[in-house]
Design a protein around this nucleic acid. Structure first.
Lengths: 389, 389
DNA sequence: CTGAAAGCGCTTACAG
DNA sequence: CTGAAAGCGCTTACAG
């Protein structure tokens, strides 16, 4: 009895309005060209071109006249023509393996905003991890209409895509923080989560936990900056590091890993590679009858928008992927159109946000919970500049 | 002591590789044109054009020769030129007020997949709700490189954007399910959640709740199909409907609304307009000391990927926005390129997914919990076709 | 089935 | 400061 039964199609198509209706609604002819504007303004079409390209060498009175004509006619330049005629780059194609996971989606938002502000278009192409050929295909396909490329290279497919972008195409990438000696081969931006991961681990240790386990995000270099920070904090406290686990980015994987960890009663604190993993791990703990944070503390990474609404609210490390997206576009612009590139961008650092999912270990003596003191949570910002060495 | 202190810039830019390096990595000259291919293949460039456009009127041996030359030279057609020369539409611009909220992001994913499959490009432009002029601006801006437009018109800014799309531009929209008499003015797709909302409400009533409250998503028509379904189930049970609340889409708003509801001890069941609102409401209940589902039952809408990992796992109504995105692109294609449009698309219906966040009201007599029987949860699918009446 | 023409709407040089 | 030329890489007709 609870089953739906519509009489209406769930997907419908309606015929396009009749041509007559079309005319009424468009207040200008489909194609007003610069020649039309030129005629209207009584100048040559080259002058119109100069005006729309903000050329400084146009008398201001002429400019006014042209601008008026443009407004009257509702003219807007044709991007295809501009691109074809060798005009400046006006669009970016973003290559990513995913567009809905938090980090990716937020980065995309940042890029979109930044492109919009300077009148760029933004195309998006998902690159799946089928194989090198497919990646190359995807890249080439994506490049066609685009002037420039941004690759979200947080994961394997992303990195593969980045490597397939021909070097004659202006490109910038968002990458995992490289280690000290690594030098990205492309203009790149990243958030270095080393210090924040160290903070988070110290915080857990400070709460009285014997050790801290780590559920890592996937890595193809065998390590991540998050992992290094975790390791460093453990080393600092002379605690032998437990073997980190890794295998996926998702809550599903976090759940599976959490199930394993839940069986070991000595596990009382887990630093997760991202909030999705943390959510899955919390769920697994709950199902195993291990209360969070009473029995086991969970700390995430990223601070997804919903983290503060979880129960318990998730203690996590905040990262500003949106700002990172903007920064990436800015560094791309510094090559493509230096004059218009954003300068002195502020990229907030990753920082620990303490909420409810971590606490003292079970049976910890009262007072040991602040053994090493609580971390400072004041928003620390650092001025970072997209620079060209 | 927990404060970060990097020595490395968080944002870096690296110089572009030297021209020499560029050459090495690009296995073809930057611009191989159809004329180059024609020369290589020993045919005229028109023939090349025919081959890349899958014209049937090319001798297959000629086609082979040309395809060979294309592969050898690494030729790929220039989209700008194709568009300018009046070639067929090859790209879509998606207009949306948001790209990261679940429904929007999932729809975008579906559109992207569908475009990729047919070799279309996809641009994305966020339309902010600043004012009609800005929307029109955004639309016109977005249209430039694009051949066609898809508007995600779930909310006000989306609807405003849709209305600004000139009728001479092929466009399709994803809209809230219209009421019986409404006739969308554009080719549109939607999910009708009436029946599922009714199911959910009946389910709650069946659990023994006196009534069901509703935290609605924003609406500009005063109602939604979700609300109608909720109302219908209440009416069916002869329960006078409590006044629905609305004000936002977010967990923040759900939290605020939940705080108010938590004060009223007679509130034992809440149907939320989406899962974010539900998450916020659950959190508010938790903070108010009202256990979910022991004291109050919460049901969401959408089934976001994390709903099953929440604690309690969220009982909600699943909607397939990704499929909706694909369907929308398919209906657009049926106008733009009927031959290549996907047919007989399957769009899963919205359906209730029972998990843990709803249960009998506090103090309910044992056995009343199934008063009206449990809903069938079997996946019901319905064949829906993108049709042109 | 294939070739020669004209042109899409712009932008760069190049002239004055 | 402004105008006349050539051409970006393709696609449509139109011819044969």
């Amino acid at each position: 009895m609870y089953v739906t039964g519509h009489n209406r199609p769930t997907v419908t198509g309606h015929t396009m309005p009749a041509p007559a209706a079309l005319k009424e609604n468009s207040d200008r002819s489909p194609s007003v060209s610069i020649r039309d504007v030129a005629r209207e303004a009584g100048v040559s079409y080259q002058t119109v071109s100069r005006v729309i390209n903000q050329s400084p060498s146009v008398k201001s009175s002429t400019r006014e006249t042209v601008l008026d004509a443009i407004a009257r006619l509702g003219f807007r330049p044709n991007r295809a023509a501009r691109a074809l005629a060798g005009g400046p780059v006006q669009s970016v194609t973003v290559l990513a393996s995913n567009t809905s996971l938090y980090g990716f989606a937020a980065a995309l938002e940042g890029i979109e905003e930044a492109t919009r502000e300077v009148g760029f278009g933004m195309a998006v192409r998902v690159v799946e991890s089928i194989g090198p050929d497919d990646v190359r295909d995807a890249v080439e396909h994506a490049l066609e209409p685009a002037g420039a490329v941004i690759v979200i290279a947080f994961d394997r497919p992303g990195v593969a895509a980045l490597e397939c972008v021909p070097f004659d195409v202006p490109a910038a990438a968002m990458i995992p923080a490289p280690t000290e000696k690594e030098v990205p081969r492309r203009p790149s931006v990243w958030i270095d989560e080393y210090a924040a991961a160290m903070d988070a681990t110290r915080y857990l240790l400070g709460l009285g936990h014997e050790t801290v386990h780590h559920l890592s995000i996937p890595t193809w270099t065998g390590t991540t900056r998050r992992m290094s920070g975790w390791l460093a904090a453990l080393k600092e406290a002379r605690v032998p590091p437990p073997k980190p686990m890794h295998g996926g980015w998702s809550a599903e994987w976090g759940y599976e890993a959490g199930e394993k960890l839940a069986r070991d009663l000595k596990v009382t604190a887990v630093l997760c590679g991202n909030d999705d993993i943390a959510l899955g791990a919390m769920r697994a703990m709950h199902e195993a009858g291990r209360a969070v944070p009473a029995d086991v503390s969970i700390v995430g990474f990223d601070d997804v928008p919903f983290a503060r609404f979880y129960t318990p609210a998730l203690t996590t490390v905040r990262q500003d992927f949106k700002a990172l997206g903007r920064a990436c576009f800015a560094t791309l612009m510094s090559f493509v159109d230096p004059a218009r590139a954003a300068r002195g961008l502020e990229l907030p650092e990753a920082r620990l946000v303490v909420r409810e999912s971590a606490g003292p270990p079970p049976g910890a003596p009262r007072g040991s919970s602040q053994r090493r003191g609580a971390p400072s949570l004041a928003g620390k910002r650092k001025r970072a500049t997209a620079q060209r060495p």
